[in-house]
């Protein structure tokens, strides 16, 4: 591990469950590592694999996709579609040389503030054990 390297995580949180869960963590004063940069999406089904691949291209050490538990999707079935796509994307990224652990998918409900904190903490710890992304370049977009 490089000295002083802090993993950077891009977190795609669904508006209805996980984003609210992160909010609960905040209002309950539950701490979680600041390594995550949260992007609110309407549904985990909105998370186009392109967004994840783009995050990795731009140098993210890890990507977290969090949505409602199966069966609880606000749009009935968005997370089921997300699950299928991510189930294929993860081994594919691994095939390209991006460790399986770098893409994490979790179901976090609107009341699970503590669980959200645990997820981000354990994910950050997991990423600390890996080398910083090699060959990834940080770009400044205009």
């Amino acid at each position: 591990m490089a000295v002083g390297h802090e993993p950077r995580i891009v977190g795609f949180l669904c508006n209805w469950c996980s984003y609210a869960g992160a909010d609960v963590a905040g209002t309950s004063r539950i701490t979680y590592p600041p390594n995550i940069r949260i992007i609110r999406v309407p549904c985990s089904g909105r998370v186009d694999p392109l967004l994840i691949v783009k995050s990795f291209q731009m140098g993210a050490d890890g990507v977290l996709v969090a949505g409602c538990h199966p069966g609880d999707c606000h749009y009935s079935e968005g997370n089921y579609h997300a699950r299928r796509r991510l189930a294929v994307l993860r081994p594919f990224l691994e095939y390209l040389g991006i460790e399986r652990e770098r893409l994490r998918v979790e179901w976090v409900s609107a009341s699970e503030g503590r669980r959200f904190s645990q997820v981000v903490s354990s994910f950050t710890e997991q990423l600390r054990k890996l080398e910083p992304r090699k060959g990834a370049e940080v770009e400044v977009s205009s």
């Binding site: 089921y80 699950r83 299928r84 294929v88 998918v105």
Partner: peptide, 27 residues
Amino acid sequence: FGYRAGVDAETPAPFATFRKDEKLEVG
């Protein structure tokens, strides 16, 4: 998903459908 594209024209593509109870080691 036990799916091969183009074997027939009717079976929905894996990303166009889902099963609620499937275990995919995701989440």
